[in-house]
């Protein structure tokens, strides 16, 4: 699941720099509105908006909230199965912008399914996506309240980190070859907000294959590695294979963190919580030491992990 989610984050960032909000059908939502959601971050937003019971199908990459996993799947966001979406009698398909899915989304529109394409690859896009969903589902007030609390959380994190030294951070998405988060990614924004400096900030794209030599030469002080996805994946605060480079400040000072990508790589409504987690990795003196749940998802549902049964 996770590598695909990483690819999703990469692709959504690559293809969605300019949010082009779809013009919604002016028909008001009504009871019985059936939603199919193929965007993981949109699924979390719908949960926050209390709309879980309206979801009748999900995309292959959707895994949160866990209660959704029992619903039928309609394929990945970039190739939704049109027949399945129609079979579920969906009124709205909630997805992320994807060039690959352009034809299938257009076909779905022709066949009467409203397609809401969201851009959740960065914080402003996520805010806009939440507003779009709120407006479309007649939940503008709830969306506004959620946004206000999220904005406040982000502002607080930024203020707490302000004025502190800015450690050099290397955020690893893939290690062999080296794939990192660059400018325009939500990860880059989180690093900055949490008071760090992304050493790949001069890359050309949000996610890029980069020179290992260059990254090593920039002497990162914190390495956050989300590349290990196997069954026995490294998790926690340990150098792992990075101990080859014992001259790196991050290795010498034991500041290499192996993290489940689901905790940091998937953008969306969890950004404030993710940014605070980033803060614990970069500035423990401000945000406190990282805890176990910062490395591996807790088996228990978190604040945004309500099940369908729990939702209003």
């Amino acid at each position: 699941m996770r590598p695909a989610l990483i690819l999703l984050a990469i692709l959504s960032a690559a293809c969605s720099n300019n949010l082009q909000e779809q013009k919604p059908d002016p028909v008001s939502p009504k009871d019985g509105l059936r939603l199919v959601v193929v965007s993981p971050s949109a699924a979390e937003m719908l949960a926050e908006l209390g709309m879980l019971e309206r979801i009748v199908g999900i995309g292959d990459f959707v895994s949160r909230p866990p209660g959704l996993n029992r619903l039928p799947r309609v394929g990945p966001y970039n190739a939704p199965n049109i027949e399945k979406v129609l079979d579920l009698r969906a009124d709205i398909l909630v997805t992320v912008r994807s060039e690959a899915a352009r034809a299938s989304n257009a076909r779905l529109r022709d066949l009467g399914v409203e397609v809401l394409e969201l851009d959740t690859s960065h914080w402003e896009g996520t805010r806009q996506a939440l507003r779009t969903l709120g407006d479309r589902l007649d939940l503008g007030e709830s969306a506004g309240e959620i946004l206000a609390s999220l904005d406040e959380a982000m502002t607080t994190i930024r203020q707490r980190a302000e004025g502190s030294p800015s450690p050099k951070v290397l955020f690893v998405v893939g290690r062999d070859p080296l794939y990192v988060a660059g400018p325009g990614s939500h990860i880059d924004a989180m690093i900055q907000t949490a008071g760090g400096t992304n050493i790949a900030a001069d890359s050309d794209s949000p996610y890029q294959l980069v020179s290992l030599e260059t990254m090593l030469q920039r002497l990162p002080e914190v390495i956050i590695d989300t590349s290990d996805n196997g069954p026995d994946a490294l998790r926690g605060r340990l150098p792992g294979p990075w101990d080859t480079w014992d001259f790196l400040p991050a290795v010498r000072e034991n500041r290499v963190f192996w993290i489940d990508p689901d905790l940091l790589v998937i953008p969306g409504i969890r950004l404030p919580a993710m940014t605070e987690r980033m803060g614990r990795l970069i500035h423990p003196e401000i945000f406190g030491d990282p805890v176990e749940a910062d490395f591996e998802p807790s088996p228990e549902p978190g604040p945004t992990e309500t099940t369908i049964e729990d939702s209003p």
């Binding site: 020179s211 090593l216 030469q217 002497l219 480079w245 001259f247």
Partner: peptide
């Protein structure tokens, strides 16, 4: 990608605190 070159590889400076030679040798 790194700054070092043949000179650093052939004539190691004392210390190599920034790992230049190690990068050349191992990457």
């Amino acid at each position: 990608g790194g700054e070092g070159g043949l000179r650093e590889l052939l004539f190691p400076a004392a210390g190599d605190g920034d790992g230049t030679r190690q990068i050349l040798l191992q990457v």
